[in-house]
C-alpha cells in the first residue's frame, strides 16, 4: 500500500514535467521572449537595448530549452524552461505581470473559492445521490420516467442560463440576496447562498442520471437477488447492499474533483464577483498574463494528480477487494 502510493507520487514528477513542457511550448512557440518584451515595454520604448534589458531583468535572457554554450548538466538547467519550472515544484510561482506575488494571491483567494465550491460539492453529492436513489426505488414507474426526463431536460440547459436566470429571478426580481459580491464573517452567508444553490442545481441533471444508471446496474446483480431471497426489504436492499457497492464507481468520478475544489469555479466566481481563484484565472486569461495562467495550470495538475491518488485510497476504504499493489 505504502509502496504503491510512493510509486504513484513518483509518477507525478514526469507528468508534471510534461505539463510544464506543454504549457511552455504552447506559449513560446509563438511568443518569443523578444515579443513579450515588446508587448510589455509598449510600442514607443522599444529599442534593442531596452528589450535586452527587459529580458535580463525578467530572466528571459537564456536559451529556451537547451543551452549549447553551457557544459554538463547546465546545458539543461541553465535555460528559461528550467528556471521557470524548477521553482514551480516548490510552489514558488513568481510574480504576475502587475508585479504581485502569485503564491500569496493564491493563498488569499483559496478561501473564497472553497467557501463556494466545498458546500456546492457536498450538498450536490448528497442531493444527487438522494435523487438517484429515489428514482431507483421507483424504477420503471411513472415517477422514474418523469425524473429521468427532468434530468435530461436539466442537463440540456446551458450552465450560463442557471446563473443568469438565477441572478435575475432571486436577486433582481425578488431581492432576496445581493446579486454579487463577497464579504467576511457571518454576513457572507448572503453572498454565497445563491452561487451554491445555482451550482447544485446546474449539476443535478447529469449527475443524478449517472448515479441512477450505476444503481440500476448494481441492482441487476446476483448478490441483490440473494439479499431478496433472504427476505431483505427493498429499502434494505438499496441502502445496505446496493449503495455500498455503487460507491465504487461513484467514487471514481467524485473523489478526483475534491482537490480541484480549491481552484474554484470560473463561471460562478466571475458572475458573482467572488474574489477566488476562478475569477483570478479568468482575469489572467483576459489580461493574457502568462505567468498566472502557467501557475494555475501547474496547480491544477498537482491537484488533479492528488485527486487520482485520493481516488485510489478511497477504493481501499469502500472495496475490501482492493489491496493496492
Amino acid at each position: 500500500m505504502i509502496a504503491y502510493l510512493i510509486r504513484r507520487m513518483l509518477y507525478a514528477i514526469p507528468v508534471l514535467i510534461g505539463v510544464n513542457l506543454l504549457t511552455f511550448a504552447l506559449f513560446f512557440v509563438v511568443n518569443t521572449p523578444d515579443d513579450m518584451a515588446r508587448v510589455q515595454l509598449g510600442i514607443k520604448r522599444v529599442t534593442p537595448e531596452a528589450i535586452e534589458q527587459w529580458k535580463q531583468r525578467h530572466g528571459y535572457d537564456k536559451p529556451l530549452l537547451y543551452n549549447a554554450r553551457a557544459a554538463g548538466m547546465d546545458r539543461f538547467t541553465d535555460t528559461i524552461f528550467f528556471d521557470k519550472s524548477a521553482s514551480m515544484f516548490v510552489f514558488d510561482f513568481g510574480y504576475s505581470d502587475d508585479g504581485r506575488s502569485i503564491s500569496r494571491e493564491i493563498v488569499t483567494r483559496m478561501g473564497p473559492s472553497l467557501s463556494i465550491a466545498l458546500p456546492t460539492f457536498l450538498i450536490g453529492l448528497v442531493s444527487y445521490v438522494t435523487f438517484a436513489l429515489l428514482m431507483t426505488l421507483f424504477r420503471a414507474t411513472a415517477l422514474d420516467i418523469v425524473g429521468v426526463t427532468l434530468c435530461v431536460v436539466l442537463m440540456s440547459i446551458s450552465g450560463l442560463f442557471y446563473i443568469i436566470g438565477g441572478q435575475f429571478l432571486v436577486s433582481k426580481l425578488w431581492h432576496w440576496v445581493p446579486i454579487s459580491g463577497y464579504g467576511g464573517g457571518f454576513d457572507n452567508f448572503r453572498f454565497v447562498l445563491l452561487p451554491i444553490v445555482i451550482g447544485v442545481a446546474s449539476g443535478i441533471g447529469a449527475s443524478s442520471r449517472w448515479y441512477r444508471t450505476i444503481f440500476l446496474e448494481e441492482i441487476g446483480k446476483d448478490y441483490v437477488r440473494t439479499a431478496r431471497a433472504k427476505g431483505v426489504s427493498e429499502l434494505g436492499v438499496l441502502f445496505r447492499h446496493v449503495l455500498k457497492n455503487a460507491m465504487i464507481p461513484i467514487l471514481t468520478g467524485v473523489v478526483v474533483v475534491i482537490p480541484l475544489l480549491f481552484m474554484g469555479s470560473l463561471l460562478t466566481e466571475s458572475f458573482f464577483g467572488i474574489p477566488g481563484l476562478g475569477s483570478y484565472t479568468i482575469d489572467a486569461i483576459n489580461a493574457q498574463d502568462f505567468s498566472v495562467v502557467r501557475a494555475m495550470v501547474f496547480l491544477g495538475s498537482v491537484l488533479y494528480i492528488a485527486g487520482l491518488i485520493l481516488t485510489d485510497i478511497s477504493y481501499t476504504l469502500v472495496d475490501p477487494r482492493v489491496r493496492l499493489s
Partner: peptide, 29 residues
Amino acid sequence: QYVYTVLSSIPSVLLIAAAVLMVQVVIGM
C-alpha cells in the same frame, strides 16, 4: 497512458485558454 495523463491533468479550460491565446497571437501577427 503518460500522454493522456498529462493532457487530462491540465484543467481543460486553462489548456484551451492558453492555446486560444496562442492562436490569437498567430492570427494577429
